[in-house]
Design a protein around this nucleic acid. Structure first.
Lengths: 153, 153
DNA sequence: CCTGAAAACAGACCCCC
DNA sequence: GGGGGTCTGTTTTCAGG
């Protein structure tokens, strides 16, 4: 999965992360190249899977999604069948923006975006009724200090 | 900050989140409208701040960023001066993808993307040498079950 | 691997409904 | 507020160095 990227590739990626709506000419100018080579590099990185897709970033507050929770989950179940069901449940729920299986005594962490605390409770009740969970801690975000999709390239 | 959005707006947002490189005609066809109204709605939502920006989503693994940590931070310091310095430090570090101030006994949570455990340690040492922190727990992600930028609209 | 031209295409803005 | 057309600029392709 590792792809060789040179300095020029990285500059292009930085520009595309910053603003993917820029024209090729603009990107080419900024990275000190010209249209066609930039275009070829972008195509190559798309094909290599470095660039996954292009998306519009929305403001959660403007959409009324004003509550953000990080959910720490411990479970007593470690069978394949249970895990499969749990993962499917997480993937199916659009309010779950992130889900990771962890090393250590906490088994999973979720990032959940909802309208308010009440909506979180609805989500939580639905989740625990679907799959057996041993222990849950919800951390409520008071302030989003930083939230970026931009990876260091 | 709350904006009135109708069903058509939400459909357009869903399409733009799914794939922002689609043409207006394509989006118009999918949502059952035509070019101009779709374009006007997009412009309105951009101006209202619902659509923040447009970005290329990159694959962290392909970039060699194979380690992801969630960092739980407790601090004994709650002065404005300390907090200002801490926030600035987080914002300045590109490996910190998310940072939230929390309610409850854990004060902050970070999401940190790095090459490996060693790179995390470098980050960690740099951070604690910059600002005084009382207690840190790092949760290592073993598996990214889900990671999406798509908000439920 | 780059330059430059050319063709296909989509975005931005018009007027009319 | 939606529909259709048009101009302009951008993407994509390709020939040639």
């Amino acid at each position: 999965m590792a792809v060789r990227l040179d300095e020029m590739d990285r500059k292009i990626l930085a520009e595309l992360q910053e603003d993917a709506s820029q024209s090729l000419d603009e990107i080419a100018r900024k990275v000190g190249s010209s249209k066609t080579p930039v275009w070829n590099r972008i195509r190559r990185m798309r094909e290599a899977g470095v660039i996954t897709r292009q998306t519009a970033v929305l403001d959660p507050e403007a959409l009324g999604l004003e509550a953000c929770f990080f959910v720490l989950i411990r479970t007593s179940e470690h069978e394949a069948e249970w895990q499969k069901k749990f993962l499917a449940a997480l993937r199916a729920r659009p309010e779950v923006l992130e889900a990771h299986r962890l090393a250590g005594d906490i088994d999973y962490i979720l990032k959940v975006r909802v309208k308010n605390a009440r909506a979180y409770d609805t989500f939580y009740q639905a989740l625990i009724s679907e799959v057996r969970i041993y222990n849950v801690t919800a951390l409520l975000s008071m302030e989003e200090i930083k939230s970026t999709t931009m990876l260091p390239v």
